[in-house]
Design a protein around this nucleic acid. Sequence first.
DNA 1: CGTGTGACGCGGG
DNA 2: CCCCGCGCCACAC
Length: 99
Amino acid sequence: MNAFTLAVIENISKIPKGRISTYGRIAELSGNPRASRQVSRILSTMSSRYQLPWHRVINSQGRISLKPGMGYEEQRRLLEDEGIEFDLQGKIDLKRYII
DNA sequence: CGTGTGACGCGGG
DNA sequence: CCCCGCGCCACAC
């Protein structure tokens, strides 16, 4: 496992309950601003093994990237359980919750 | 070694 | 707000 992957795991682990971050932001913090896609892949493959708060990572538009029936519902429920609110379009106010 | 594929992001219509 | 196109990049085939 490379340094970037390690940094991503570390940065995601640090997201506090009730707050969120984005794929792009995690990529930046981890040293590669252009690797947002890798962040998503790392999440899908490492989230269970490293017990990451995977649900606290959303996209730059403030929306859940998972598709309905493929995890969307669970991620939304986990976030709502932490007090995060969604608007009518299923969007989260980034300014309010991002780290 | 090409080609297709995304839990992405940004700009534009 | 929705929909596209394009750039990006590791990975699977």
